[in-house]
Simulated assay, not measured.
Amino acid sequence: MSWLRDSIRAFWQQGDRLLLALCLLASGYGMVLIFSATRYLETNRNMIVQGLGILLGVAVYIIMSSVDIELLTEKSWKWLILFNVVINGLVRTPLGVEVNGNRSWLHIPGFPVNLQPAEIAKLTFVLLLAWQMSRLQERGISRPSSVFQFAGHTLFMFGVVAVTSGDFGMGLTYLIIFVIMSWSAGVKKRWFLLAVVVCVVGVVLIWPHVKDLYFMKRFTVVIDHITGNPDTISEQTLGQGWQQTRSILAIGSGGLTGMGYLQGIQTQSSYKSSLPARETDEIFAVCGEEFGLIGCLVLLALLAAIILRCVWVARRACSPQSALIAMGYAGMLLAQVGVNVGMCLYVFPVVGLTLPFFSYGGSSIVTMFAAMGVVSSIKMRSLPSWLRDRSRL
């Protein structure tokens, strides 16, 4: 166990203890909300699973801080690609189970919780994309051949997630990570403009053929709600928009300071449909109902601090590859926060994305701590200030 002692000693001397403290504050706040959200179940299982997930996450954070992530990716990139494909493909085997309409989970016999493969694969996707981009930067990151390569990699992973699990919300996270990392890598703005044009034209062409699909109705109900379409008011409140309607009602009823801890009407209701997915997708609504606007701002401030810390580490990274990894994980957090809060505020369709560090989920919390452990590893190997100054000359 000497390697573990060495890892802990190295982390304590050079690791990002501030980032770990922010993650613990956020996950601790999340535990408070999860307890309230699951109190009606009259069981402590969710709290136990989340608590064990946080403890395991801290251990993984410390271990990942001691790993030279660039060396690991350089030696294992082929295996990491295979891992991404295989672990997502497992959901189509007898190990795959359906939760809330998505077959995106693995149930391993004897294992206490289900695992979400696409959540885990996000970590290695960022490592591989950063490794690929850093090498393409040497010959021109904005060359068509370069853009097609890493864009093709991203679309391939999006396709794997979509085909195996049908989880388009998770696939959207991959795309947002790609956009943020591409921008950070220095891809010229004309490529982003071209991508927007292609997306708009594509939506216009295929919309008549897909608008009646179940998944597409999640988007149309949000558009109808924002525009105030009176013809679909029943669908907005009782149909596809039921979950989001309950969410904004909970947030709105909290006001400035909230109804008080364990006092939220919908949060404490014994009817699961009163506030669906309250411990996962709608944990932000729980915060708004019981702690009000102030509680929500504290929640968002903690997440913003974690994201900004990742950006701070990226700016001081020892190489472009490490900087892109840190920015990739910052983008991952930003994507999930934006989409999850947007769902709760009824400005984004329900796509089943959890709120990082706050929502219930064993695999999710461990994955987040692992990602931040990689950022801590980058911080431990950052350039000294005098060399950073010379590098900008």
Rank of each mutant, 00 (worst) to 15 (best):
L25A: 13
S36D: 13
E42V: 05
Q50N: 08
I48A: 10
F35W: 11
T38R: 12
L24Q: 07
G51T: 07
M31I: 08
F35H: 11
A21M: 07
R45W: 05
Y29M: 09
R39F: 15
I54M: 14
M47C: 01
R39Q: 15
N44D: 13
T38Q: 11
G30C: 06
Q50D: 05
S36E: 14
C23P: 08
L24G: 11
L24A: 10
M31V: 07
F35D: 08
G28L: 01
A21D: 00
A21Y: 07
Y29F: 15
S27R: 00
F35M: 10
A21L: 11
Y40F: 15
G53H: 07
I54K: 02
S27C: 05
A26S: 10
L22W: 00
L22H: 00
S36I: 13
N46F: 14
Q50C: 10
L41T: 15
V49F: 13
G53Y: 07
R39K: 15
I54G: 05
A26R: 05
L24R: 06
A21P: 01
Y40R: 14
I54T: 13
F35V: 06
T43G: 08
V32W: 09
M31C: 07
G51H: 09
M47K: 00
L22Q: 01
G53L: 08
Q50A: 09
L24Y: 14
R45N: 08
I54F: 09
T43E: 09
Y40G: 12
V49I: 03
L25S: 11
Y29Q: 04
L22V: 01
L24K: 06
V32P: 00
G51N: 06
V32M: 13
M31G: 09
S27Y: 07
F35A: 13
L22T: 00
M47W: 03
C23N: 05
S36N: 14
R39T: 14
G53R: 07
Q50F: 04
L22R: 01
Y40P: 06
V32H: 03
L41M: 15
L41C: 12
C23F: 02
L41E: 14
L25D: 05
T43Y: 09
F35S: 12
I54S: 06
I34H: 14
L33W: 02
L52V: 15
L25T: 02
L41I: 14
N46I: 00
E42G: 09
A37K: 06
I54L: 10
I48S: 02
A26Q: 03
G53T: 03
L41Y: 10
F35Q: 11
E42C: 09
C23I: 08
G30L: 06
L52D: 03
A37V: 10
V32F: 09
C23A: 14
L22N: 02
I34Y: 13
R39L: 15
I34K: 12
Y29I: 01
Y29A: 05
I54Q: 05
F35L: 12
L33E: 03
M47Q: 02
V32N: 05
M31E: 09
Q50T: 11
A26G: 01
Y40W: 15
L33V: 09
S27A: 11
L24C: 14
L24P: 13
L52E: 09
C23Q: 04
Y29E: 05
L25H: 01
I54V: 15
S27Q: 03
A26Y: 02
L33R: 04
S36H: 11
